[in-house]
Write a protein that binds this DNA or RNA. Structure first.
Lengths: 350, 350
DNA sequence: GAGTGTCGCTGAAGCGCTTCAGAACGTCCA
DNA sequence: TGGACGTTCTGAAGCGCTTCAGCGACACTC
């Protein structure tokens, strides 16, 4: 069953009796031919069932592909359930989408980031990396291909554009807020330090050897202000995991009076855990988050948290990506600001 | 500033002193040359900084691109906050990722589905469409390009592979459950019938003219069992919108004793609305959802809902996509099963 | 009426790769 | 010894497009 061969530029050119260049121009540079001829070309294309220049061939000839690659540190499912990531991605998408670009998603497996083979085959001419572990093999694969890259929340890589957040500073802000309220006994809840599925209390060695920069920085920010405190690591930024972890932390004696969480998502789990134990936030336990996702404001009680401009981060990343796409230089890192948003989940500790 | 031209196959071939075909074989058909030579080629490539065959050129030559396109009915932001979509996408991704394929996301604008231009330029050789409106222009664009397509939750398109769910049957199951519990006064909460941002009560005409098949079917399922009932349409499947809508419905007199929601996400908003009014689920109001996303089980109270196997749906879509990629025929539609999961959000109505 | 533009179109090179039909050179068996 | 076969490598065609120099032809200008 040989289906009719797909029409190409040549097919159309032959049908109209013009050169191939002219048909190409009809699609790409309407000013290069008379509009009458252009109409004839387009009409012929329509009757022949020609849907326009083949994207792959066009990419080869023009040497760019109108696609932005996105390197994810986790599986797609985890990514999609992470509101912070979703918002960043949305900011990014809203920027690049307006320019007829597609997003090529390269999800990470368990090993922290996409497989290098996936990167090697992906048709994108700029790549955005987001919260990968420092040693993700995909980063090397991107470098090897010589693709321009913008890294968000990521280790400093030479030659890349960057969007940075002062995670440590933000975390310190949160810790100092609690200190100012008179808290002295803390528990810390965090998402992974390494992509190995670990759950439980974190040793100093593990903390120091963490490969997720964001995690390390937030924890460092917390601990540098409050001194030593038990840190519970969840294997993902999921509230159910945090609920379990928070119960562990609250079960220690003396019981912490404040829980510092590496993300809002974890803080939501902590709020639930406090309720589970018949305690009240913030009377018995203060809880503080990080990110300020939309749900933070609507939590019960509304969550005190460190705000980072997530949409903006994504948008900035998108703009940088577009700039690199145009052959621009990476330029200086863009730093976005963080600030503390005081709401109802933290209170004075008598 | 002319950066050194990127090495190509020829560069490597020249360096090693072999033909271009041999270098190509070193990457693609190791059995076609001695392993000693292969080693030399690969070593030369490494020192030259050659990262392997260019994906675009390779795609042009082989006429396939190892990418699966995904047509989204909504903007990326909405997509990422939709747990059901996320789970489907994850199932899909886990299937195609194992085969070194990437996912090319084509987000929809406000108009219901991606712009045709985006589709025309996307480098994918199979496309998965998910919950687009019946009349999405992107569908026509895919057809025009002659790309194979698998449609999920979608109108029947000739020549496409399909994954289907009995939405109407599932909804009827839910409605009959409530009827069996003695309920007689209902309210229905739904996500959009058309991609026009409408919020508020739904007229019969609007219902009949809805362009989202899933919405239409679920509502039809509900209403065919319970008879007439007020239907509130939210402009997205977001719990905050549902919370508002549910408050409206519960404000009517006589007050409904049961709320049927087109998705779990909407049901979560409904639960909140009931609480807002100082009422209790399920004593005062029963609430039922659709999808059975993971959070349904952990809701307060745990949500009675119609379960559809979301991950499985995505996986099936992925398998179909891979089959089409291999030149396979679409075959018969795959139907996945739905069933009622009774939990704590529904109860007898005295 | 020679010089200068502009407009509309074409020819041909080239983007970086795959692939297929051989060529060259053993090896093996009869 | 010679033919059949394998193995290893190569030459060249071709994937479908963009783009750039250039060519007529026609319209202006002084």
């Amino acid at each position: 069953m040989d289906r009719p061969r797909k029409p190409t530029l040549d097919t159309v050119a032959a049908a109209v009796g013009v050169s191939r260049a002219t048909v190409s121009n009809a699609y790409n540079r309407p000013d290069q031919l008379s509009s009458a001829l252009r109409e004839r070309v387009l009409a012929a294309a329509a009757t022949l069932g020609y849907a326009g220049p083949d994207p792959v061939a066009r990419s080869l000839a023009t040497r760019h592909s109108a696609a932005v690659g996105f390197l994810l540190g986790q599986q797609l499912s985890a990514s999609f359930s992470d509101p912070a990531l979703s918002i960043v991605l949305d900011g990014l998408a809203s920027t690049v989408d307006g320019h007829d670009h597609c997003l090529v998603l390269m999800p990470g497996g368990d090993r922290g980031g996409p497989r290098p083979e996936t990167v090697a085959r992906a048709q994108a001419d700029v790549v955005v990396a987001y919260s990968l572990p420092d040693d993700a093999p995909a980063l090397e694969a991107v470098r090897a291909r010589g693709l321009p890259m913008v890294v968000v929340d990521q280790p400093v890589l030479p030659g890349t554009a960057r969007v940075e957040v002062d995670d440590a500073g933000g975390a310190r802000l949160a810790a100092e807020h609690l200190l100012g309220l008179g808290h002295t006994r803390f528990g810390v809840l965090t998402f992974p330090l390494r992509p190995d599925g670990h759950t439980g209390l974190v040793s100093a060695a593990r903390l120091a050897g963490g490969t997720f920069r964001v995690t390390r920085d937030r924890l460092t920010g917390y601990l540098s202000a409050i001194g030593d405190a038990p840190v519970w690591e969840c294997s993902g930024s999921r509230r159910e995991l945090a609920r379990t972890g928070a119960r562990e932390l609250l079960g220690r004696s003396p019981r912490p009076t404040a829980l510092l969480c590496a993300s809002d998502e974890l803080a939501f789990g902590a709020l639930q855990a406090v309720r589970d134990l018949g305690l009240t936030v913030p009377r018995d336990v203060s809880v503080i988050g990080f990110d300020d996702v939309p749900a933070a404001e609507h939590a019960d009680p509304p969550l005190t948290t460190v705000r980072q401009p997530l949409t903006d981060k994504g948008r900035r990343a998108g703009e940088l990506a577009l700039r690199l796409l145009d052959g621009g230089r990476p330029g200086d890192p863009i730093r976005v600001a963080v600030n503390l948003v005081e709401r109802g989940s933290t209170a004075l500790q008598e």
